[in-house]
Amino acid sequence: MKAVTKAAGAAQDDPACSERLPLAARNGPVSMLVSRVARLHRIAAGKLLKGLGLYPGQEFLMMHLWDAGPVRQSELIKAVDLDPSTVTKMLQRLEQAGHVRRRPDPEDRRAVLVESTEASCGLLTEVQRSWGELEEQTLAGLTPDERIQLAHLLTRVEANLCTETADCPEVARREALG
């Protein structure tokens, strides 16, 4: 119990850590901050995306399609690392909005190819603009050097977590690109 008290005291000495941390989170003040920041970032992104007619997460699916071109739905599910039923629902909504098209794969009629439509080109521009707004909102008050430092630190944190989960398609893709 002494180690818990000592760690809790150290966390309270850190100005980045709130004194209002729940008892169970006092040994993980940075993890608590990361969780809170991720939640708030998702809420802010959701507000920006709502104006585009998108739900949070759909932009990642579209980003993949814009970059990769037509892909099998099974590959898309792996790339965005979401539950297949979630991706199917996202695709249904995006298809109804005219942003994606699904068709049988000519190489394997059992597989389905998914691709962005020409109509989604305008959406691409709006998503880029929204992500720029989100970036500025998120990093307001940070100097250019602090922004670079934060990006480096978050990349290291991401790599640590990917090592633990052994399942990070984004990191594997970046490493493959060099």
Rank of each mutant, 00 (worst) to 15 (best):
I43Y: 09
Q12S: 14
E107P: 02
K89M: 12
Y55C: 10
S130D: 11
Q92H: 14
R103D: 06
V112L: 12
H152W: 10
V114M: 02
E95C: 06
P56M: 03
A7P: 01
A10F: 06
R173L: 09
L154M: 12
R174S: 07
A151H: 12
V4Y: 13
V37D: 05
E118C: 06
Q92G: 14
S130L: 08
D81Q: 13
Q12R: 11
V127Y: 03
T125S: 13
N160Y: 10
D67P: 01
R102P: 02
L123K: 00
V100C: 04
A11L: 02
G132R: 06
K89W: 07
D108C: 08
H41E: 12
A44F: 05
A176N: 00
M1C: 09
T86L: 11
D108K: 08
Y55W: 14
S116P: 05
G132P: 00
P29F: 06
G28P: 02
L94M: 13
H99W: 14
H41A: 11
S31K: 05
E164F: 12
H152P: 02
L94F: 02
E158D: 12
V34A: 14
T165H: 10
K89S: 14
L150D: 06
D81P: 00
S85Y: 10
P169K: 06
P106E: 07
L49D: 01
R174Q: 12
L153G: 06
A79G: 08
D67A: 14
G28S: 09
T88I: 06
V80C: 06
D145M: 09
W66G: 03
T143D: 00
L76W: 02
P56N: 00
G9L: 09
A11N: 00
L123V: 02
R26E: 00
L154K: 07
T143P: 01
R26W: 01
L177T: 10
R109L: 10
V87N: 01
K2I: 14
A10W: 11
D105T: 05
A44T: 08
E126Q: 15
V87L: 03
A119N: 10
D83E: 14
E107I: 07
T165L: 12
D83T: 10
P29H: 05
G98Y: 05
V37W: 06
E135S: 12
T155Q: 12
S18L: 08
Q149H: 15
E107A: 13
E146N: 06
K6M: 09
I148T: 15
E75L: 09
L54H: 00
A140I: 04
I77S: 03
